[in-house]
Nucleic acid binder design. Structure first.
Lengths: 237, 237
DNA sequence: GAAGGCCGTGAAGAACCTGTGAAGGAACGA
DNA sequence: TCGTTCCTTCACAGGTTCTTCACGGCCTTC
């Protein structure tokens, strides 16, 4: 539900305002103030959404859009919401042509931005809110913030839940520790990445029938961890 | 699952398109082409959902919204999805203020409309029937603005009621303090979020048999609070 | 089979979160 | 205006959780 959003806006006050509104909505945000930084951060962090001011120093929004779209051929594209001061259709159309998903003309109401963000995310993520992830006997319910194993509620800490939910959102996909940190805890969570190991260990104690040879939380040697997408019951128990 | 949907859209081609998409989704539709008819049909049939074009002859969408909302005071409100051609925020915000549940800006993708319909129905449905929320021995009646515990009326303050009602509208769902503030008190209610704790504590004193280990108002550590959707009587009473 | 890197794990302090009493101030009704 | 009720903030205590570290064992590669 909470998304990782990159905000690129050179006016710091404006940027701060946006950040506050988005974070109040529960999202994790990173703010940059010029186009160059926008491109770098977008590449480095691959956020769930980019809020992009058209007029920015160094590289303007349209070029950021162009560059990122050129990057992402093949890979999943970052959804982009453009902010434009000019109300000329040119910019808008150009922006949309370049692949922006939506736009707002300044001055706009921050609530409107929040609404658009919600819309774009819903459209993009495909997955409905209130969805429950299931793998084997494991159920992860983000809305209720609950984990069940074979129908039994599992006591779980916030960090463990975030990691598990992140893994469960893409079962079978391997995540690096760094990715897990960012996706589960947000951009600016400066923590030693081996901390993940400890959480995974504790999770295994809670959900694995046999923590020694895990059926759900798989180690991907040299990479990180993944959640099995199919659980093979090891023996005929 | 199939819903009865009233479509109010003056452009006949557009209306026909919407009808076809919605019926393909399994819904039952009635189409009208002006605001007057929309109001009449909405009153007569009390549909499960109204898809409403803002610009229509005779009575425009905003007025339809206003009228129906005025009608329904007390009664169950029709969920409304607005269609607006203008992208000015005025319309959107006005629409949302008037009680539209969602909106789409033209031109929009019909599939997007279908998705919104699904979302709004899911959100609305659960709530439409009883109007009284029940959990265990607890009854919350938004219309009467009353809370009963095992048939006994509970004295409750306005703030407490709002919080409890918000939680009760989605039992089992975990709310952050921030969400509770916004849902219960409105968007621009700038209050320290730990205030919620105090209200919850006071609520517990009033409705929990054993405030020390609450059966209704559960703490979700690191997240916020939720209302239990099943109450387990702690001992064999 | 050996070397080198990677992972699992226990322990411990730091950091964080919630419950709660008290107190100031706002809102309301008389 | 006054008194009461209610809301909000604050501070602290107690409990839980997070993070780091260090070490031993495991996996991979050569």
């Amino acid at each position: 539900m909470p998304a990782r959003i990159l905000v690129a806006e050179d006016d710091r006050k404006q940027a701060e305002l946006i950040r506050r509104y988005l974070e109040r909505e529960g999202h994790l945000t990173v703010v940059v103030h010029d186009g160059r930084a926008a491109i770098d951060e977008a590449r480095r962090r691959s956020p769930d959404l980019l809020v992009l001011d058209v007029m920015m120093p160094k590289v303007d929004g349209l070029d950021v859009c162009r560059v990122l779209r050129a990057d992402g051929a093949g890979d999943r594209d970052v959804p982009i919401i453009m902010l434009t001061a000019r109300s000329t259709e040119d910019d808008l159309l150009l922006g949309l042509d370049l692949g922006a998903d939506d736009y707002l003309t300044k001055p706009y109401n921050p609530r409107e931005l929040v609404a658009r963000v919600r819309t774009v995310l819903r459209r993009t993520r495909g997955r409905a809110e209130g969805e429950v992830y299931r793998v084997g006997a494991l159920e992860i319910d983000p809305v209720r913030h609950e984990v069940q194993l074979a129908g039994e509620l599992v006591e779980i800490t916030p960090a463990e839940f975030k990691i598990l939910a992140c893994l469960a959102a893409s079962p079978g996909r391997a995540f690096s520790r760094q990715q897990l940190l960012e996706h589960a805890f947000g951009f600016d969570h400066y923590v030693f990445d081996r901390t993940i190991d400890v959480h995974v260990m504790n999770l295994r104690k809670k959900i694995e029938p046999e923590p020694g040879s895990p059926a759900y939380l798989k180690t991907v040697y040299g990479v990180g961890y993944k959640l099995a997408d199919k659980v093979v019951t090891s023996d005929a128990s």
